[in-house]
């Protein structure tokens, strides 16, 4: 999924984003459904990585869409929707994180035991690793956390990250690298200094 003009809805059909935006700007709320269904998974996934709570992620992403629709009259329909929307969502996530630290919900890819199911010890260790990674991520500044979420959790390519953040493609690599260096420091600070050992297990 890109931040370009021709969105593709989950069902597979193409969407002329500019035309849909113009209908929304004319006050057609039902036209906004195509926009929402195109980007809802991506938005909710970003909010989940940021907030750590599925309930909060749905609340934040839906509120971001609602705010986007209310402000759509000021949006330039010639531009891609998602980067503009992403800024609304990102600001909501930042406000949310500043207000409260809520319950975290993470599932961890734990190493599996011989019978194919993770054992209690493996689960405990994986949970602890995930908790420490979460703590390290939370200690990063917003810009670092944002670019790491887009790359590591949403799996976006550099070009897609550049489109989402509305920054030059050449900037992505250096910003991401700096974010990784700071994450490494935070991981060491929370006791994951032996990352090489853990990653190899």
């Amino acid at each position: 999924m890109d931040g370009g003009r021709a969105g593709r809805r989950p069902g597979g059909e193409a969407m002329d984003e500019g035309a849909v935006i113009l209908r929304c700007q004319a006050g057609d709320a039902s036209a906004f459904e195509a926009i929402v269904t195109t980007y809802m998974r991506r938005a909710a996934a970003f909010a989940l990585a940021w907030s750590g709570s599925r309930e909060d992620a749905l609340d934040l992403s839906q509120e971001a869409f609602a705010r986007a629709f209310r402000a759509i009259g000021r949006f330039d329909a010639a531009r891609p929707f998602y980067p503009w929307f992403h800024r609304i969502l990102r600001n909501l996530c930042i406000d949310h994180a500043a207000r409260a630290r809520r319950r975290r919900e993470f599932a961890v890819d734990a190493p599996e035991e011989a019978d194919g199911r993770p054992g209690p010890e493996a689960l405990r260790e994986a949970d602890e690793t995930a908790r420490l990674v979460r703590t390290a991520l939370d200690r990063l500044n917003d810009a670092d956390r944002e670019i790491l979420i887009l790359r590591e959790f949403q799996g976006l390519r550099y070009a897609e990250i550049a489109a989402t953040l509305d920054i030059p493609p050449g900037t992505v690599m250096s910003r991401l690298h700096q974010a990784r260096l700071r994450l490494r420091e935070r991981l060491r600070a929370v006791g994951l200094g032996d990352a090489e050992g853990r990653a190899g297990r």
């Binding site: 599925r54 993470f106 690793t129 959790f153 990352a195």
Partner: peptide, 9 residues
């Protein structure tokens, strides 16, 4: 890789 062990539900 350590970061990626933390998968979101």
């Amino acid at each position: 890789e350590v970061t990626r062990t933390m998968k979101l539900k």
